[in-house]
């Protein structure tokens, strides 16, 4: 195994996936391609073909994807996803097929890639924060994703710290981070010397300004 692991204090581990992990790469190559195209801001489109299913044409420039598949039955564990890139010009006509919100696809790909591990371009010990929230009125999410997002939007935190802070959902932290990264809303901050202040406990936050209203409202609505 070529995995890198980092200890999260009390033994919590974050796995960083390696590109040579297995033949069954699932969404990994797709995630890498999306990350690369976004990073170099290249005018390129990407065709993703999971197994023998309907392809997705990803247009990062227009922030849309084109497919007859509306993601209601998204294949989270395909054996292989074919990835092809192509050059697009702003003058090109939009591809055929219904145009859909790209955020929904990127969120799904991010959470389904790297076998529950962290994308190789992310570090378990680097400080991150969010510059925006995913469009939670559109993307599937749990209350954990809302809590994680609220925390990371307001506090610079490492992945290892997040694993500690959300022990019940620790397995879901890397996938969410991958998704944030593919959405282009995860900011990597320069490493700073650690101060004496410990990471914030999300549960403790709730007791401050609203007296823990969030958890009671969640119970009230049965979320």
């Amino acid at each position: 195994m070529a995995d890198q692991s980092s200890s999260g204090g009390d033994g919590a581990m974050v796995t960083v996936a390696s590109p040579t992990d297995s033949v069954d790469n699932g969404w990994d190559d797709a995630a890498r391609a999306i990350y690369s195209v976004r990073k170099i801001a290249a005018p390129m489109g990407i065709v993703l073909q999971p197994d023998d299913r309907t392809p997705y044409l990803v247009d990062l420039h227009r922030k849309k994807f084109f497919s007859t598949d509306d993601l209601t039955d998204f294949p989270t564990h395909p054996v292989r996803v074919g990835v092809q890139t192509y050059v697009v010009s702003p003058d090109d006509q939009e591809p055929a097929g219904p145009a859909r919100n790209l955020e929904l696809l990127l969120w799904n790909v991010g959470r389904s890639s790297f076998h529950g591990g962290l994308a190789p371009w992310l570090s378990p010990t680097a400080p991150y924060r969010l510059t925006a929230w995913p469009d939670f009125t559109g993307v599937f999410h749990t209350t954990f994703h809302l809590r994680l997002t609220a925390h990371l939007a307001n506090h610079v935190t490492t992945v290892d710290d997040l694993v500690e802070l959300f022990p019940a959902d620790a397995d879901s932290v890397p996938g969410a981070m991958n998704a944030f990264s593919l959405l282009g809303i995860l900011e990597h901050l320069p490493a700073q010397p650690a101060a004496a202040v410990q990471p914030v406990e999300p549960a403790a936050d709730a007791e401050r300004s609203t007296g823990g209203l969030w958890s009671r409202l969640r119970d009230r609505w049965g979320f």
Binding site: A150, V156, A195, P202, G212
Partner: peptide
């Protein structure tokens, strides 16, 4: 959708009120 907006508002209020982390 409006419940998600309200949830997020409350969570964000609670999270903003928290003390800074060691990186801030």
């Amino acid at each position: 959708q409006m419940k998600i907006a309200l949830f997020s508002l409350i969570l964000n209020i609670e999270s903003r009120a928290a003390v800074p982390s060691r990186y801030e």
